[in-house]
Design a protein around this nucleic acid. Structure first.
Length: 894
RNA sequence: GGGCGGUUAGCUCAGUUGGUUAGAGUGCUUGCUUGACAUGCAAGAGGUCACUGGUUCAAGUCCAGUACCGCCCACCA
């Protein structure tokens, strides 16, 4: 295994190491060292890897591999969450194909069925993470429904309950009529919809005396009028002040509605009067509480009309009911007018059905007391957001935090550990429930055994918010917990700050007494090249697995990092992955070149044993550049500037090492052992710098390289456990860098002249360099061969002064004048003829194009973009012609 | 309604505390199959840094305002 295939095959290489790492499980941390822990956002168990995960996990793996090489005990616990609603939806969908519902199976069997599904498909995303090269400790993989994590969930519920932070209450919550469950505020997505604002006339009792018998109310949801219990107006509103306390009549129903004042009502919206519907609107619910109104609920859980509405509406879907109401209002002349109106409507984040506000009995967590310390620790910078601007977003949300509705009316999840004594309930005792971690079979107060557990389960986030410590064994006092909590860094996307990040901070402080992580790195959202968020429903997905298949995981990883500026959104298209693919190919071939030229019989000396005096200018230069690169790359990683880090290595490796040093080395690589040592040194260190970004290719080359290295100790050892390169200050040499820049500039100018004068590649002109600077003269003298070979020159003459030799082209670097002698090299007359011919052809083209554009037929008939193209072409031709003419002038001046 | 981000090369984007000639990838033009690599090499063209004003010896960078694009939050029914 000591030769590289002529062509780099990422699939082969990545497959090999992916399996090797999976079998050997090399990622477990060594406990003795200083810990560095990363918190992975546990992906949804129903999920498949999308580009957002790709970016997220690449960033995390870069951090973890880098820190591992730095000698930290790096722990990255992988896992998935049980995604209650999503998973249940998936399994129910499958059942529906069999013509069954979950009720046909019953709770036990259904849950069995979900577990079965999870066995089969639940580890898809874990496998995909492995393919991406993630170096998680797979032996510690966790699932939020695991025994340990479930125990943590129950423990937390009990503790919070005992502290008075969990309560049960009738409250207006977000209800998804399709999923048939409550949703937290964060699970509701607001979408702008074009709706209507209906102006409905409510007759007012005793209002006739004022000359108008109606109070007009604007609403977007006329169907909820069936549940109206009052009319609200702003107490300061002069138009309606006198109506307070009077009654209005609810059209179509006939119920009497009291008119009440409330500050929350905006006199400038609609007519300034509000129909109060406490059962179906959160604002109205609050008003209802303040004014002791009894709500009337007219919806079934599936959002059809129930028996509280007049019979003719019963059973109608909410939207059908809306139509019917409008019709009836029109018929009875209650509808004054309809205006179109743009407003935000809440939708279920899982199934995208419009959410229905609904009063129901739910469990809540009181958030205020949990939020206070979580605010404090962020304000005092014990937890730092990167980029910093998210701190403000976090603090603002925490400052206005609302209680958290944690019960869900589904079956898949952690069942709420609350037991009701049916006997006590029947005899009218309030609070006839027991909160208990273990199953309850007997009522402690009446000794009855008619006990039922709460049928609801907990919000999935109620388990995810414990992730940083529940995965380490909490509530047990484990070694892992002691070693790895608090963790170091959390890497996540901004969408999840409220769902998860904020709640983890609160739970960490509450249950562990310390912050869960020190840094929160928020990366950008991955979007398609039109700026849309990538999502399955939009069909604009670039599947990371396709990219891995086509270009390789290394290419995917490097490209993602390369284009992702700190916290900025990423716009993707397939072409963007060419950077990574091409770079991997470059690394492979550079290595191939070096290895092909090493003397296999003789060991290459270790760089450290060489005397400084043995190094050439180029050696000194590249070693200085290497150490500068180590420095800038390390600093960039420390500051979470991943793209800068990637850019640094890319620039160094390709445009300095490959473009220049490798080319220079070609002159004597076979026999110069110092050059060989430098090549190996730079290659080795570069691979190490690259390893966090491109783990597969660097590992492959590392292993092959081991057989060439003087230190045989590195054999068999993985690059991932090798020490991160340290900056060796003694190699940083600004003089060497300046000298090399001067020499390369001269070579570039020479090449420039050659290209301009059309000197054939195999022709070597003579050159004269004129400088009065002694240092420059000295430098040129020492590197005449170098300049000659890279500039493809015959002879080089250095002079302190002198005029332009006849028949020569000129260039300049600093104060150094460069003369390329072209006498006998190019046949000026022939060259002029060539150019003139070209000019003639272009002139013809241009004339044709001008004719075409002036042609009336053409400009009439041709489509606009063709005309634009023609104009552009005309301009390009004119420009080229101009250049050719200047070129001829230059030739004449020689 | 509130908050945040963006506007730099044809396209997609970098540009750290203000400091030489504003960079990369890609695309384009020209030349090259040179024994590592055409997924490549060499050379080149291409920018009024959205706009207006201010601070400064010096502004893509700092301040104020304007315009457009995007995102998040929000109880205007």
């Amino acid at each position: 295994m000591d030769e590289l295939s002529p062509r780099y095959n990422p699939k082969e290489v990545e497959e090999k190491w992916y399996r090797f790492w999976e079998e050997r499980g090399t990622f477990a941390p060594v406990h003795k060292k200083k810990p560095y822990t990363i918190v992975i956002p546990p992906p949804n168990v129903t999920g498949i890897l999308h580009m957002g995960h790709g970016l997220n996990n690449t960033v995390q793996d870069v951090l973890i591999r880098w820190r591992r090489m730095q000698g930290f005990a790096t722990l990255w616990v992988p896992g998935t969450d049980h995604a209650g609603i999503a998973t249940q939806n998936v399994v129910e969908k499958a059942l529906r194909k069999e013509g069954k519902t979950r009720y046909d199976l019953g709770r036990e069997a259904f849950i069995q069925r979900v577990w079965q599904w999870r066995e089969e498909y639940g580890s898809t995303i874990i496998k995909q993470l492995k393919k991406l090269g993630c170096s998680c400790d797979w032996s510690r993989t966790r699932f939020t429904m695991d025994e340990g994590l479930s125990d943590a969930v129950l423990e937390v519920f009990i503790r919070l309950y005992k502290k008075g932070l969990i309560y049960r209450s009738n409250y207006i919550i977000n209800w998804c009529p399709r999923c048939n469950t409550a949703l937290s505020d964060e699970e509701v997505e607001h979408r702008e919809l074009e709706g209507n604002l209906y102006y409905i006339k409510y007759p007012v009792k005793g209002y006739e005396e004022q000359g108008d018998e109606f109070l007009t109310i604007a609403t977007t949801r006329p169907e909820t009028m069936l549940a109206d219990v009052a009319i609200g107006i702003n107490p300061e509103d002069k138009r309606y002040k006198r109506l307070v306390g009077k009654t209005a009549i609810l059209p179509l129903v006939g119920r009497e509605l009291v008119i009440i004042p409330d500050d929350i009502i905006d006199p400038h919206f609609g007519t300034g009067a509000l129909k109060v519907t406490p059962a179906h609107d959160p604002v109205d619910f609050e008003i209802g509480l303040r004014h002791h109104l009894t709500p009337i609920n007219v919806f079934e859980p599936n959002a059809t009309i129930n028996e509280n509405a007049p019979e003719r509406f019963r059973g109608l879907d909410r939207f059908d009911c809306r139509k019917k109401i409008i019709e009836e209002l029109k018929e009875n002349d209650f509808l004054l007018k309809t205006e179109s109106h743009l407003h935000a409507v809440g939708h279920c984040y899982r199934c995208h059905t419009p959410v229905e506000p609904r009063i129901s009995l739910q469990w809540f967590v009181k958030m205020g007391p949990l939020a206070r310390p979580a605010i404090k620790y962020v304000t005092r910078k014990k937890i730092v957001f990167i980029p910093e601007r998210w701190t403000k977003v976090y603090l603002e949300w925490m400052g206005n935090i609302k209680d958290w509705c944690i019960s869900r009316q589904i079956w898949w999840g952690h069942r709420i550990p609350v037991y009701y004594c049916k006997d006590c309930e029947a005899s009218g005792r309030k609070d006839a429930f027991i909160v208990s971690k273990t199953p309850v079979t007997q009522c402690p107060s009446c000794r009855g055994t008619n006990i039922e557990q709460d049928p609801d389960v907990l919000d999935t986030w109620f388990s995810s918010w414990l992730w940083p410590f529940s995965t380490l064994g909490w509530p047990k006092k484990t070694k892992d917990l002691a070693s790895f909590y608090p963790t170091s860094t959390l890497v996540t996307a901004q969408e999840i700050i409220f769902f998860w990040v904020a709640r983890m901070i609160m739970s960490g402080l509450e249950f562990m007494g310390s912050i869960p992580f020190a840094n929160v790195y928020i990366h950008g959202t991955v979007r398609d090249d039109t700026g849309k968020k990538m999502s399955k429903s939009l069909g604009n997905i670039i599947d990371p697995l396709d990219i891995i298949e086509e270009f390789g995981a290394d290419a995917l990883r490097f490209s993602l990092i390369f284009i992702t500026a700190k916290g900025q959104d990423v716009f993707l298209s397939k072409e963007k992955f060419h950077v990574g693919r091409n770079f991997a190919n470059k690394i492979w071939n550079a290595t191939r070149f070096i290895l092909l030229n090493l003397d296999k019989e003789k060991a290459v000396p270790d760089i450290g044993r060489l005397q400084k005096i043995q190094f050439s200018s180029a050696d000194r230069w590249i070693l200085s550049r290497l150490n500068q690169t180590i420095k800038t790359t390390t600093t960039a990683l420390e500051e979470f500037r991943f793209n800068d880090a990637a850019n640094n290595i890319y620039e160094f490796f390709w445009h300095q090492f490959c473009d220049w040093y490798l080319e220079i080395s070609k002159r004597d690589i076979k026999e110069n052992s110092v050059t060989q040592a430098v090549l190996l040194e730079v290659l080795t260190k570069s691979l190490q710098l690259l390893h966090p970004f491109m783990p597969f290719i660097t590992e492959e080359i590392w292993q092959i390289l081991a057989s060439f290295s003087a230190q045989s100790a590195s054999k068999d050892a993985s690059i991932m456990l090798s020490p991160w390169p340290a900056v060796k200050k003694e190699y940083i040499n600004l003089d060497a860098e300046n000298a090399m820049r001067y020499l390369t500039d001269i070579i570039i100018v020479v090449r420039n002249i050659r290209a301009e004068m059309n000197v054939a590649p195999d022709v070597k002109p003579d050159c004269m360099l004129v400088t009065h600077n002694k240092k420059c003269t000295e430098l040129i003298r020492r590197h005449i061969n170098l300049i000659a070979s890279l500039g493809n020159l015959h002879t080089i003459e250095v002079a302190e002064s002198g005029g332009k030799p006849p028949m020569s082209a000129t260039g300049i670097v600093g104060t150094t004048e460069i003369f390329l002698k072209l006498q006998g090299i190019i046949d000026i007359e022939a060259e002029k003829m060539r150019l003139l011919k070209k000019i003639q052809k272009k002139e013809k083209d241009l004339a044709g194009m001008l004719n075409r554009l002036e042609d009336a037929e053409f400009s009439k008939k041709a489509p606009h973009h063709i005309i634009e193209k023609s104009i552009a072409y005309r301009d390009a031709l004119a420009e080229e012609l101009n250049k050719l003419r200047i070129h001829i002038q230059n030739l004449e001046q020689l």
